[in-house]
Design a protein around this nucleic acid. Structure first.
Length: 390
RNA sequence: GCACAGGUGGCAGAGCGGUCAAAUGCACCAGACUGUAAAUCUGGCGGGCUACGCCCUACCAAGGUUCGAAUCCUUGCCUGUGCACCA
């Protein structure tokens, strides 16, 4: 049985193509080269991105080499996977800046000792330019059939729905596949939406008489809404550089069912013990663990205290943003707007009408005039506080 | 290039001369309920006005027709599809 041999490697994965191949590769004493390709398309990472990074770290812990490919070249093309529309290509400068923050944040998860980090422009540039060698685009293009590409589900879907699909996007899987050949990957990790691209890597490696990589797909992590995959564009993400309190709060707002998936994909913790206890305490443990990883234990403890104080006990937070009134007396709606608790007066009035506003613990039921002489605590909704000073 | 279809609020998508600040769904905000859960239910969801009403800006852009246009016409821009030997 290879379970012990492979450690946590099979935890939380969606599928492996194939287990036998992976086990065979592991028999050899040589460390494997584990590929993870990331396109620096977004400036900051969220927990969804860390699923694959965690897996990569587990491989490192087994003595294997992580090869992190920063897709600076491919980012300028844009991965069409799972997309229904063409995405705008990024500029060189954007890609560069994103790559820097990416590495910075990925560094919190990966072990730098067993890490190789490469930019795929290093070989893809030549791949596009070369004419007479095997290492060039035309050589590969001659071997891929159109049928193969357009049968792919998300491409087929776009064609059916009369959505645009550019040649460039069609090319994307080939480039990702070529990356695998370029770095001699033994294993590639990626989300389930990457399956096609990763399989293409196997084909391409074979064409170059290389042993095909093992493809390991990881589930996509749902975002805080519990339905769609975590993504910046759905605004359901938990960013690694969210403030500790926010990060803690967002994790707590995840449904119980989803919490277990978070545990499985984001931690190495043993679930059976945790499932015995109260779900809420399990969730707090999870939130604490994750906040600690990205912000340290001090911040994590503070975030937990803040959460328990404000939400469980419905008490005031220990510190809150201050706002100096522009004048006094002042109408309540005006005050809500200028302190940033409402985006317009109409919205402020709505909040008041809906009984969402409290001043020093007293419910405000109309837009009255307030005279402020000592600091006043305004609460708008469940989580927004402001200390009003004169 | 030619033909056809289309461009509406964060998204999807109705409306096709007045009753449209624009149906409906999603997202979002607030309230109730709770473990700040989730689910559910209720209300809201352009801006401004001491206001059960009034005003302003909005349906790709610019003109035009009309008492009146998101709705009709013209032009432009953009998008998609089809055709491109027989047509």
């Amino acid at each position: 049985m290879t379970t012990s041999f492979l450690g946590h490697i099979f935890r939380g994965i969606e599928n492996v193509y194939s287990r036998q191949e992976l086990q065979a590769k592991c028999q050899k004493k040589k460390p494997l080269r584990i590929k993870l390709g990331v396109d620096p398309t977004a400036p900051d990472l969220h927990l969804g991105h860390t699923v694959a990074l965690n897996k990569l770290r587990q491989f490192q812990d087994q003595g294997h080499t992580a090869v992190l490919i920063i897709g600076d070249y491919t980012a300028m093309i844009g991965d069409p996977s799972g997309r229904t529309a063409l995405r705008p290509p990024l500029s060189e400068a954007e890609v560069k800046a994103n790559a820097d923050t990416y590495l910075d944040q990925a560094g919190k998860i990966l072990d730098p000792k067993r890490l190789e980090c490469v930019y795929n422009s290093k070989w893809l540039h030549a791949f596009f330019q070369n004419k007479n060698s095997d290492e060039c685009l035309t050589w590969v293009l001659a071997r891929v059939t159109v049928k193969q590409l357009i049968e792919r589900e998300d491409f087929a879907k776009r064609l059916r729905q009369e959505q645009p699909l550019s040649m460039l996007e069609l090319l994307y899987p080939l480039l990702q596949g070529y990356d695998s050949h370029a770095i001699q990957a033994d294993v590639e990790l990626g989300g389930t939406d990457q399956l096609f691209n990763m399989m293409m890597g196997r084909d391409i490696q074979k064409w170059y008489s290389q042993k095909p990589q093992v493809v390991m797909t990881l589930p996509l992590l749902e975002g805080t809404d519990g339905i769609k995959k975590m993504s910046k564009s759905y605004d359901n993400y938990i960013a690694l550089n969210d403030k500790p309190e926010d990060m803690f709060g967002k994790i707590m707002s995840v449904s119980d069912a989803l919490m277990w998936k978070y545990y499985e994909l984001l931690t190495d913790k043993d679930l059976s013990a945790l499932k015995q206890g109260h779900p809420m305490s399990a969730k707090k443990t999870l939130a604490e663990f994750i906040v600690t990883r990205y912000h340290g234990s001090g911040a994590s403890q503070k975030a937990r205290d803040h959460f328990e104080r404000v939400f469980s006990q419905r008490d005031l937070p220990t510190d809150m943003p201050e706002h100096k009134v522009s004048h006094t007396p002042i109408r309540l709606a005006q005050l809500l707007v200028e302190s940033g608790l409402a985006s317009s007066k109409n919205e402020a009035r709505r909040l008041i009408q809906q009984k969402a506003v409290e001043a020093d613990g007293e419910k405000m039921i109309d837009d009255r005039e307030l005279t402020i002489h000592s600091p006043l605590i305004i609460k708008a909704g469940k989580r927004q506080f402001r200390k009003i000073i004169v």
